[in-house]
Design a binder for these strands. Structure first.
Lengths: 248, 248
DNA sequence: CCGGTTCTTTGATCCATATCAAGCAACGGC
DNA sequence: GCCGTTGCTTGATATGGATCAAAGAACCGG
């Protein structure tokens, strides 16, 4: 599972793009995450309890079943959340980018594992202290609730996708979602960066690597998308992609 | 969509088991729902804004895309939540029983439709008033958040099921979930009542009616379950069912 | 109690996607 | 720049579950 070169899961820098330990006030994703709910005074409180860390690709950030001691906010890079069956079958339940939140637990343990896909920078909040803060800052509580509601809504979209969409519809939905989320992070909606591999996409969409690859080829052949280098995909015909995603 | 006989979606009684308009203090599912977080004083506030209603089978309680004016608490009966694709393919995202909560919205509209499966009794809370209450009663806010977290966790379990489990594993997981949820409502864990039809089970598990039926027959033939009358299923070999559900 | 409707089961066949199997391209370490 | 590794694509074949079809079984209204 782990890579051969020694990797630091600490505050040393792995990549110039990943800046750990910036003060919260200068956080590049503040407007997107829980912290958006806070004013300067409140942010100071939060900054006191936060621990910033970096993780290299393939590093596990926490595992399903671990005691859920912390809440996390991704500030840069891409993370995947996943669950496993006993025989190794894997379902990726989400990809997280800068501004996304993770670590909600049930019964005191994490309900899924989290692993870095790219070099990742993360803010870690001790759960206990965080909960105390929530009592004092109801705005934050609300923000957290609203983020959970949003996640719930996209979980339901994903159920529709997994249970009822075809391979082509799944892939079209996936690419459009990546595009929409890129916009929310202030990035261009096109071309989209696809940092995860075919196998990961498959485990997210309930497909095999081969089917993902074949379906990408289909969309490419139909001139709906174009593959660029650097893990980028250009959406050539967005309307066609939208129609496919909705099953039209 | 609607049934031919005239049905009252109001406080008149449809079924002796469905008691509308009881005072919150006497609510049969209070300990299970949001209201569990409240003391008598707070409950009085809540009782002021609540509207209790009954719904007959097949009645739509609200539809995906409707303006989300209310939050709901199921107090009796069975409700299903679902999403549709343009061509009619349906994914049921959840079955709700007494004590369960629904109506979380994103962007001011409901993200799914809700329909009664059995006669159902429901408490309806106007969203605006509810939100004002949440500011005054942080306990309730917390309770709501914790319920959303639990839902999120089961949504993720369902993704694993939809994306990676076989028909047999899906059905075994489903029956065990029904059993576990019955226990939480203070009902026996065995035999379990299965109020929804094969088609609904199929649309929940990402299968067709026929496959659900065949798979039930398989489990029956293997003496793992037994079909009783009155929509009841007896779990004969729970351990076998659990092994199947986990993919062992 | 009867007849129609709806739901469930069972059977035969089909097909979308999985599986098995190479070859090919990209990347990272030396 | 080369080589080993890993990931991606493509091809051939297999299969779980879908689809098409129809016969029971349960339910409801009269």
């Amino acid at each position: 599972m782990s890579v051969s070169r020694p990797i630091a899961a600490d505050n040393r820098q792995l990549d110039p793009a990943v800046q750990p330990m910036h003060p919260c006030g200068a956080c590049p994703v503040r407007s997107l995450s829980i912290c958006a709910a806070l004013d300067h005074h409140e942010l100071d409180h939060l900054a006191e309890i936060v621990i910033a860390k970096n993780h290299a690709p393939h590093q596990t950030i926490f595992a399903e079943g671990d005691e859920a001691t912390d809440l996390f906010n991704v500030t840069g890079g891409t993370v995947m959340l996943y669950k496993l069956l006993a025989d190794g079958r894997r379902q990726i339940t989400g990809f997280l980018f800068g501004g996304d939140f993770m670590g909600l637990s049930v019964g005191g343990v994490y309900a899924y594992s989290a692993e870095a896909i790219t070099p990742v920078s993360i803010c870690r909040f001790p759960r206990k202290r965080m909960e105390r803060m929530l009592d004092d800052f109801p705005k934050m509580q609300r923000r957290l609730f609203s983020m959970a509601s949003n996640e719930l809504a996209s979980a339901q979209d994903q159920m529709l996708l997994l249970g009822r969409k075809t391979a082509k519809e799944k892939l079209a939905s996936f690419l459009l979602n990546l595009s929409r989320r890129a916009v929310r992070r202030g990035q261009p909606d096109n071309p989209i960066t696809v940092p995860m591999g075919r196998a990961d996409i498959g485990d997210y969409l309930g497909l095999t690597t081969e089917t993902v690859s074949r379906t990408v080829t289909q969309l490419k052949t139909a001139s709906i998308i174009r593959l660029l280098d650097g893990h980028k995909i250009q959406i050539v015909d967005r309307e066609a992609l939208e129609d496919i995603a909705e099953g039209l």
